[in-house]
Design a protein around this nucleic acid. Structure first.
Lengths: 332, 332
DNA sequence: CTGTTAGCGCCTTCAC
DNA sequence: GTGAAGGCGCTAACAG
């Protein structure tokens, strides 16, 4: 920047201003400065700028995995919302582990993000403490935590799965099973299972039949193994809800393989409206949630919160509920 | 850091040393300092440290999309390799657009990454210029560029698709078609098509039949539409290679829907060994490439290059070839 | 509209 | 093994 200043005949401060839009620099000056910049190939150092302005330009997002189109859609929504204002996303993935989340929170905070987006409402005490001490806006997504840290953009996974049980019931299914991961690591998965169980009891359909399989997230292949186990154990089951479309897909393919008609012999539903559920034959009944929109809305909420902080306006922790909808397709 | 220094009774410099392993600080001193840090909840500012040490701790990776398990696997491999040495990944996605890649290159360079990982060998002249001026190690992946910028970790998409043509030919298929995206935006897709065409000619199977569909990346659904068009236009086609497993999957599901047996009426092969290809019924013949390993190897190559730069050793631009293999499954 | 001064939080370098 | 001085590249704050 000093070089640009010297070569253009202005001070470094004026160069700095010329690079920022909305700053008071004459058109002529800016033009000359940009010319020099182009000429010598100057690339400003944002981190140095951030050190000085106390605004890093970073926002951190932590998702369970980027290897799942739902969360990567959310990450895209976030990127789109934030990049409009020049904020850059620092993306981390926790592998569904709260311990890894804690490590990532600690690591990311060293980059002085202006805000942080988390997935779900379950965090280690230390992670929570770090986040609260950071004094930046936090948004939890993909869930409706009982005791949110700050802001929330999400929906009730339990309620959504309950809606699926009701939809299946309305179609005449009575012996409805559930296939999911085997632990509480995937808290959204656990919520879905809880929602299933609650709805079954509520509708007087008994306690239901649950097959848990593998470490979350449950894979396509495990979905296939689980449905075999389900039918082996409870042949009377006529419909099964899978914790995600991926396992539902695996289950349906295994049914094809074994000659079990879907939905004739058994109906299969998923969760998440992944591309595979739309394209599969039979197409898979699922719960659709706009994953991209979760990210977009979280990003916009963060931006407006940041604006309020700067203008000194009052901030109140809000919860933005995201719509979900049961989409009935061929598989049920 | 000044607070920690005061409270511990040491200088800021000693605090800085206590935080870095390998620095000469007595065990007792370090212990006391870490105690104070824990007590007051001090979180070091890495960007300020980077400004001073001239090492940002960042590495940038640019992929076409994170919404594709192949590239996100590569990103995971990169993260795993780099985080061991405390380097953090700045991930960007280009949406298969060279113009967006250029923007991202410019934006990321402002963060002073210590190295940059790109996907493919096609870049705008300006992007290339920016990268070359940056004087940092660059690694191009997922391809074997004719004129690489620096280092390469990849494989020949054309060769891999040629191998698939040969495999199908060995199984007796003669009228082999190709389904892919409609433009050169996806350069790996274009390479695969070129490899298909070259192999067809080489094997004396004519010029082949190509259906291009949609803006890359071609979706599952578009794969379904494309195979209908293929069979409508060239009913003699007995096998089709799709540019990716996703379109192959869509094609197969559409065949199920229409009662066309796979592989009886038509064989279908994909590319990339996505989870869906393993689990699909019939399972999909594909080209398997270790996507995670591409990232891992690129990360390790970058680390060793960085080491060499620091130690003043000579660096020579190398090309690391990644293995691929045709995996025959039920769909052919 | 432009310039000067000071300092962001840390680390390099040198001294002891 | 520890400390002091100075500066990394930039921008806030103030002055004109």
């Amino acid at each position: 920047m000093a070089d640009v200043a010297r070569l253009s005949g202005f001070s470094a401060m004026t160069v700095s201003r010329a690079l920022k839009d909305g700053a008071s620099v004459s058109a002529k000056t800016r033009e000359r400065i940009l010319e020099v910049i182009e000429e010598i190939g100057y690339v400003p150092d944002l981190s140095a700028g951030g050190l000085s302005s106390k605004r890093s330009g970073f926002v951190t997002a932590l998702v369970p995995t980027i290897n799942n189109s739902n969360f990567s859609d959310t990450a895209c929504g976030l990127t789109d919302a934030l990049s409009k204002r020049g904020l850059q996303l620092l993306l981390g993935y926790t592998d569904y582990s709260a311990a890894r989340e804690e490590e990532l929170v600690a690591a990311m905070l060293r980059r002085r993000p202006e805000g942080m987006i988390l997935t779900g409402g379950f965090h280690t005490p230390r992670a929570r403490h770090l986040l609260e001490s950071a004094a930046i806006p936090i948004i939890e997504t993909w869930d409706l935590p009982d005791n949110p840290i700050d802001q929330v953009v999400g929906f009730s996974n339990a309620e959504a799965t309950g809606a699926m049980v009701r939809d299946l019931t309305a179609r005449g299914y009575r012996n409805i099973g559930f296939i999911g991961g085997s632990s509480k690591r995937d808290t959204r998965g656990a919520d879905r299972r809880a929602g299933y169980e609650a709805a079954m009891v509520e509708l007087g359909l008994g306690e239901g039949h649950v097959i848990t399989f593998g470490t979350p997230p449950i894979s396509m292949e495990q979905g296939g193994q689980a449905i075999v186990q389900m039918i082996g154990q409870w042949p009377e089951v006529d419909a099964v809800i899978c914790v995600s479309d991926l396992s539902a897909f695996g289950a349906i393919m295994e049914c094809h393989r074994r000659g079990w008609a879907v939905p004739g012999r058994i109906a299969v539903a998923g969760f998440g409206d992944f591309e595979v559920s739309r394209c599969c034959w039979p197409s898979i009944t699922t719960v659709t949630v706009n994953s991209y929109d979760i990210g977009k809305q979280a990003g916009e909420l963060l931006l407006s919160t940041l604006d309020k902080i700067r203008s000194g306006a009052e901030i109140q922790a809000a919860t933005q509920k995201i719509d979900f909808k049961v989409v009935a397709r061929e598989s049920t």
